[in-house]
Simulated scan of single mutants.
Amino acid sequence: MSKKQEPGAAGRATIRDVASAAKTGKTSVSRYLNGEKHLLSDDLKERIGRAISLLDYQPSQMARSLKSGQTRLVGLILADITNPYSVEVMRGVEAACRQEGLTLLVCNTNNELDQEKHYLQLLSSYRVDGIVVNAVGMREAAISTLQQANLPMVLIDRKVADFACDVIALNNVEATQMMTDHLLQNGFEALLFVTEPATVNTRLDRLRTFLQRMQQSPQCIAEQGEIELSNSQGLETLLRDFVARHPDKHKAVMCVNGALTLQVARAMRRLDMTWGPDIGLSGFDELVWADLAGVGITTFKQPTYDMGVAAIGQLVMRIQGNTEPVKDIEFSGELIARASTAAR
């Protein structure tokens, strides 16, 4: 065989073509393709490999999935693909999928519950082997859709009430305590915790831990403010009023996530507030620009890449039939202190 042979009538090489070119049967080719090469002689393996190369044979993934009962497809549903957190999680998930020989299908819900339900149904129709979900809400109809699909699933970052599932997440209690203690130890006397609407457990856990920790320092002032990301005017009012209420206090703002940290920084600029000299500023999630913004902004770095890798590891275990009780796998992060929260 000095040149590529012509494929079958359909214009694409078939397993029959490979068997003919290698002068063997289809059963031997199937064993070669399905990880049973140890059953074949060295000479036969060489002939089949050469035939596959010459014919440019590509196995039908659909046919193989029908035979094995697995598609080797994995779904990833993200609440907001523009969020740097989501991008890093996706990198970890994709790298782990490549390592496991899985193909990743990525869906972005744009924080819309209807889109989340739609993608759950869509991925189920594609017969994916499992799903990793950064949930928007997944309550009622969406959860019902997933339960009916009966697919292995791992949640990342956010839990879903009354839904038993493995969860990969930051240790939010530990992280919030570290951030709050950092501000208190650096002499801040009035702290404002700013959060988006507390509709997911991550925000609730961080807010609750902040308030509990502040109760241990009654000499300091703890306030909270809930705001939509798009409400720039409301955010300016929240910051302006906080500063006005405590003119003689060393003040700081703690933001519940990276997206809100960006909006707070923009609002401070519009109000001519300078983080560091005028007011402290810190936020969860490390931002690529955090050390370049003014004197730098203190952040809490999550091991998001590693969390994405861990999510696939746990999902693969479930796909393979692991029936251990569901569990929360929590990661520790790193406080990156910058001059925005420096002690006076």
Rank of each mutant, 00 (worst) to 15 (best):
M317D: 12
V74T: 11
V29L: 09
D114R: 13
L235H: 02
L229K: 04
E324W: 05
I81T: 05
Q314D: 04
A337I: 15
S53H: 10
I319E: 06
G101C: 13
Y85C: 03
Q61H: 10
E6N: 13
S65F: 10
A149H: 03
E36G: 08
T274V: 14
I131F: 07
N83L: 02
E94Y: 06
Q61I: 09
K37S: 12
A198V: 13
V253E: 00
G313Q: 13
A96G: 04
G130T: 06
K159Y: 10
S282V: 14
R206T: 05
E112W: 02
V194M: 14
V93Y: 01
T14M: 04
Q115G: 02
L192D: 00
L262P: 00
N34L: 10
G49K: 11
R269N: 11
D129C: 04
A21K: 04
P197D: 07
F331H: 06
N322H: 11
L155T: 01
D43S: 10
N172T: 12
G296S: 08
M62N: 08
R206V: 04
T199I: 14
D205M: 09
R269E: 07
E189C: 06
T109N: 07
S125R: 11
V93H: 01
Q148N: 13
N231D: 15
I279V: 15
V243R: 14
Q115A: 09
S28M: 13
M178K: 15
S60P: 06
G25R: 07
F188E: 00
I131T: 04
M268K: 01
D272V: 06
A13E: 00
Q216D: 13
R31C: 05
Y85K: 02
L235V: 08
V316K: 15
G333N: 04
V74L: 09
T145H: 05
M254I: 15
T304N: 09
L260D: 00
R206H: 05
Y85N: 11
T109A: 12
V154F: 03
E6G: 12
L40F: 10
A259G: 11
E100A: 15
D278M: 03
M214F: 08
P277I: 07
L184T: 08
R16H: 15
E36T: 06
N231A: 13
Q185H: 14
K37I: 12
T199C: 08
R203S: 14
I221A: 11
G313R: 09
L170E: 00
L76F: 10
K249M: 08
R91H: 14
R338G: 07
I77E: 00
T237D: 13
L183H: 00
A96T: 03
D248M: 11
G258C: 03
R318K: 08
P152F: 11
A339V: 08
V256G: 01
G25E: 05
R344M: 11
A63R: 03
R240D: 12
